[in-house]
């Protein structure tokens, strides 16, 4: 093996010349910075790719985005309107009673609501129980949503009710 190394001695010394082949001065000072910035760019590109894919799936989204990008005032007005609607809905649902609906329902307590059969007050249909009784029969002071809840919990045509009836 040593003999083989000696045979290639001149070649190995010549190959040492290649160690002097260096990039321009200062090349390594900026190399890692370039790598890191390309990694960051790729990351941004990947995110953009996701947005592009979404735009491809639903083109109206991109059209809408473009429209609002050129008209920021419209975007602001629509955003504000959405907020007002949302707040209005929350406030309305939290009110103790809704006056217009409650009035009608109170009437239904004793006389029935116009257009609604007073079947609920009739003693002829006990099997239906509270499932069809008007919501106005519920205690006062509860909101519309509170009045609706009991209707959902009571089974309307359960087999047990029918058996009991028989």
């Amino acid at each position: 093996m040593q003999n083989q190394e000696d045979n290639f001695d001149a070649l190995r010394r010549a190959l040492k010349l290649k160690r002097h082949e260096q990039p321009p001065p200062g090349f390594y000072n900026s190399f890692s910075r370039q790598v890191i910035s390309r990694i960051r760019e790729n990351d941004v590109h990947d995110r953009r790719h996701v947005m592009d894919a979404a735009a491809w799936e639903a083109p109206w989204i991109s059209r809408l985005m473009q429209y609002f990008q050129t008209r920021p005032a419209y975007a602001g007005v629509i955003g504000a309107a959405a907020c007002v609607l949302l707040l209005g809905g929350v406030v309305y649902s939290e009110r103790p009673s809704a006056p217009v609906v409650a009035e009608g329902l109170r009437l239904g307590d004793s006389q029935g609501i116009a257009g609604v059969s007073p079947l609920a007050n009739s003693a002829e249909s006990p099997a239906t129980g509270s499932s069809i009784s008007p919501v106005g029969a519920l205690p006062e002071g509860t909101t519309l949503f509170d009045k609706m809840r009991p209707r959902q919990t009571v089974p309307v045509f359960s087999t047990t009710n029918l058996l009991n009836q028989k």
């Binding site: 390594y28 190399f31 890692s32 790598v35 890191i36």
Partner: peptide
């Protein structure tokens, strides 16, 4: 952590570059 990776790049950039160049 890109700062950590930056350090790794700086450690090996010369050797990797030289190998590819040769």
């Amino acid at each position: 952590d890109l700062q950590a990776y930056d350090e790794l790049v700086q450690r090996y950039q010369e050797r990797i570059y030289a190998t590819i160049y040769h």
